[in-house]
């Protein structure tokens, strides 16, 4: 067992883990962060996407021990503390960017990462930006709309300053 300490959605947790424990299993089973889910074995589906030190990663392809000392943000940590949704969460709702919702946490986390890098993506850029996330329900069109709508809102609300990673920068 190895001692690991990480800050997840603003709270620091210290635990003993087996080195083989995947970050996603640590989040779900030790920390109760069940909003992040597992969809495959091969790093293809992206359902488990979280932010590790501000960057989107597939938490099924990171060991918990590798996240020692890191800052992890999950789908449960992106809304404002008061409950106001992140613009990307809002846009997924508004544009019907989800059906069963299983891919949604990963899809939202990947989309936020994309928008940080490219605040005004074209249709094709959104599609490429979320190529690592599979959805079986939506055919993606409304997800693409949602990401573009969120981009618009984030641009108008941040007015030139980059929105901080974990806050929702509401208009």
């Amino acid at each position: 067992m190895t001692r690991v300490s990480m800050r997840v959605d603003g709270v620091t947790y210290t635990d003993e883990v087996e080195p083989r424990t995947l970050l996603v299993h640590h989040l779900r089973e030790a920390l109760g962060k069940v909003g992040t889910v597992v969809g495959c074995d091969t790093s293809n589906c992206g359902a488990c996407t979280v932010h590790l030190d501000g960057q989107a990663v597939k938490s099924c392809t990171v060991l918990a021990v590798q996240a020692d000392g890191a800052e992890v943000t999950t789908i449960e940590g992106i809304a404002e503390p008061g409950g106001a949704l992140h613009p990307v969460q809002k846009a997924f709702h508004e544009m019907h960017g989800l059906q069963c919702g299983y891919c949604t946490p990963g899809m939202i986390m990947a989309s936020i990462d994309l928008l940080k890098e490219n605040p005004d993506p074209s249709d094709a850029e959104v599609r490429e930006g979320i190529e690592g996330n599979l959805c079986r329900c939506t055919g993606y069109q409304n997800i693409v709309r949602a990401v573009q709508q969120a981009a618009g809102e984030m641009k108008s609300s941040s007015a030139g300053t980059a929105a901080p990673e974990t806050t929702g920068a509401q208009a």
Binding site: R28, V34, G35, V37, E76, Q89, F92, H93, G101
Partner: peptide, 19 residues
């Protein structure tokens, strides 16, 4: 109508069986 279901699904407050 925007879906009632979304509130839990976009925030990760879900009840998947594996949870």
């Amino acid at each position: 109508r925007r879906r009632k279901e979304d509130a839990r699904l976009i925030t990760g407050r879900t009840t998947w069986t594996d949870n």
